[in-house]
């Protein structure tokens, strides 16, 4: 009889297998990626020489910029897990859930909820919460998988550094997937929601990567890129998140607020 977070709980229950599948995938990728670290460590000098010959833009795009040795523990974790692979996976997962708000509306499934004595804003909020909860769980799975694997391969990285790196990844994911919720609430179109969030994420990744390599045009755009505020190297190296992560929190909250406002201002789509 309780009505607290019914939609959230239903959305979680519907995604049990989804969560299991994504968790297994992330664990496998983390374990396989970090299992190679001992071989890279042993040949770090040769590898560094090879990497040194790469253009700065390429190094930046693959998370090997920032003046950090890419085969040091922190450099390897950053370039191989946190700079690209993990944000990519979490963004795909989060955008999928964010886009499902509009997807349910397009398929007509949401109508059975919108005709209930429930404010539209609550429906949007509980789907947003589903996205936050599930991507957070995936970030925690990543944290545990990385923590266990670095210990197994004898990689000297602090627990708090790994924790904050995963938290920063979750914050980036919320800000990207929150845009899918916002565009979905605004337009009721899943395709548009997913496309806009994906384009903003990919564009941000490229802008920040090329700006780090010192390319002037991209340096001017750097502040608007979400990836600029996702300074995971800072989290790994300092063992605490960068202040710039607050920008990701702000973007997440502002897009949620706009989504709650937008859903009340339009016709809902028929299935």
């Amino acid at each position: 009889m309780t009505s607290s977070l019914v939609l959230f709980r239903r959305a979680l229950a519907d995604r049990r297998r989804w969560l299991l599948g994504w968790s297994v995938g992330i664990v496998l990728l983390v374990v396989l990626t970090l299992a190679f670290w001992p071989s890279f460590r042993d040949k770090a000098d040769d590898m560094n020489e090879m990497v040194a010959n790469l253009p700065d833009s390429v190094k930046s795009l693959f998370g090997m910029g920032g003046g950090v040795d890419p085969f040091s523990p922190v450099g390897y974790l950053s370039s191989q897990v946190y700079a690209f692979m993990l944000p990519l996976l979490l963004a795909i997962a989060g955008i999928g859930i964010g886009g499902s708000l509009a997807g349910d509306e397009e398929h007509g499934v949401a109508e059975s909820v919108y005709v209930l004595p429930v404010p539209r804003r609550r429906i949007v909020f509980e789907r947003w919460l589903t996205m936050v909860a599930l991507t957070s769980l995936l970030a925690v799975v990543t944290f545990v998988a990385v923590l266990v694997t670095v210990r197994l391969v004898d990689m000297p990285v602090g627990t708090m550094a790994l924790w904050w790196a995963s938290v920063t990844s979750a914050l980036l994911t919320w800000s990207i997937a929150g845009l899918a919720v916002l565009v979905g609430a605004w337009t009721g179109r899943r395709g548009v929601a997913i496309t806009v969030a994906t384009v903003i994420a990919v564009a941000g990744y490229v802008i920040t990567g090329l700006a780090d390599a010192g390319i002037g045009f991209f340096e001017t755009l750097e502040p608007v890129s979400l990836f600029t505020h996702y300074d995971v190297l800072h989290s790994l190296a300092q063992g605490r998140p960068p202040w710039s992560a607050l920008v990701l929190v702000a973007v997440t909250l502002v897009s949620l607020g706009l989504a709650l406002w937008a859903i009340d201002r339009r016709d809902l789509r028929a299935g």
Binding site: M1, S3, D14, V115
Partner: peptide, 24 residues
């Protein structure tokens, strides 16, 4: 509704229980 779209993976019982819960 004339064009009734229900969540396909959910049982009728669970669906109706959710609807009742949302109606408190």
């Amino acid at each position: 509704p004339g064009d009734l779209n229900l969540p396909p993976k959910v049982t009728g019982r669970a669906f109706l229980a959710d609807q009742a819960a949302l109606r408190r």
